[in-house]
Every structure is written in structure tokens, then in C-alpha cells.
Simulated scan of single mutants.
Amino acid sequence: MEPVEPRTGWTFVTNHARILAMILRDPEIRLRDMAENCQLTERAAQAIVKDLENAGYLTRVRHGRRNHYAVTPGTVFRHPAEGQHEITDLLHLLVDMESRVHASGRPPAGSGRQEADLHG
């Protein structure tokens, strides 16, 4: 029996969730930094921010040449299977996980590899 190749092209955390977590951690994060952290183009990151803004998950206010983002309190998951839980519960978990990775000095697992999940 041949070994089964692992499925690729999916991740547990979508780029939408990653970007929203970055905004929660740093409300003045640059679009360029969001894109770099998610291994996306700036245009793809901008489309995700627009999706999140249109869906009511964040607000954006221009401060001079920079944007200031805010995660909208009380917003819930979009899929009915997740119930009426607030999205910030997941975002705080992601922010905490990233903080622990940075504190340990270890690169995140899979770093250096391009994620195939560009639209999630």
C-alpha cells in the first residue's frame, strides 16, 4: 500500500481570522504588515479587510496617512454550527498563541512555507 499524501490547500485558521487577530493586537497595523504576516499580496489583504468591514466585524477610521482599525464588539461567528459565540473569544486565543510563540523565540510551525489558503 502506498503512503497517502496529506491533503494540502486548507488550514485550521483562515486568513480572515488571522487578519482580524492582528488588528485586535495592533489597531494601527499597516496593510503591508498584514499581507506579509499572512504571506499574501497587499491586494488580497485589502480584500479581506474590506470583507470584514462590510460584514461588520471591524471599523476603519483614517488618522492622517494611517488607518486605525477596531474589532466590533459583540460580533459572532458566521456559521450556525459555532452557535452565538463572540468572535473575540477566538481572536484572543490566536493573539495569546502568537505571543507565546514570539516569547519562546521559536518560529511558528510551517513558517517559510507559502500557505495555499489565500481566500480564507
Rank of each mutant, 00 (worst) to 15 (best):
2 E>G: 07
3 P>H: 10
4 V>H: 08
5 E>G: 01
6 P>D: 13
6 P>Y: 13
8 T>Y: 04
8 T>G: 11
9 G>S: 06
9 G>L: 06
10 W>I: 10
11 T>P: 00
11 T>N: 03
13 V>K: 03
13 V>T: 13
15 N>K: 15
17 A>W: 07
18 R>M: 05
20 L>K: 06
21 A>K: 02
23 I>M: 03
24 L>P: 00
25 R>E: 15
26 D>H: 05
26 D>R: 06
27 P>A: 01
27 P>M: 00
28 E>F: 03
29 I>H: 01
29 I>K: 03
33 D>L: 07
34 M>G: 01
35 A>V: 04
35 A>K: 07
38 C>D: 07
38 C>R: 05
40 L>T: 04
40 L>A: 08
41 T>P: 01
42 E>A: 05
45 A>V: 07
48 I>G: 01
50 K>E: 12
53 E>I: 00
54 N>S: 12
55 A>Y: 03
56 G>I: 01
57 Y>C: 03
57 Y>S: 03
58 L>A: 03
58 L>H: 01
59 T>M: 09
60 R>F: 01
60 R>C: 12
60 R>Q: 14
62 R>Q: 14
64 G>V: 04
66 R>Q: 14
66 R>H: 12
67 N>I: 01
68 H>V: 15
69 Y>H: 08
69 Y>A: 05
70 A>L: 10
71 V>P: 02
73 P>V: 03
74 G>R: 08
79 H>V: 04
79 H>W: 05
81 A>V: 11
81 A>P: 00
82 E>H: 13
85 H>N: 12
86 E>C: 07
88 T>M: 08
90 L>I: 04
91 L>H: 02
91 L>G: 02
92 H>I: 02
95 V>F: 05
95 V>P: 01
95 V>G: 05
96 D>N: 13
97 M>P: 00
98 E>C: 06
98 E>D: 15
100 R>M: 15
100 R>H: 14
102 H>E: 15
102 H>Q: 15
102 H>N: 14
102 H>K: 15
105 G>F: 12
106 R>T: 09
106 R>F: 11
109 A>L: 14
109 A>W: 09
110 G>K: 06
112 G>L: 10
112 G>M: 10
113 R>L: 15
113 R>F: 09
115 E>L: 14
115 E>N: 13
117 D>I: 03
119 H>V: 13
119 H>D: 15
120 G>D: 10
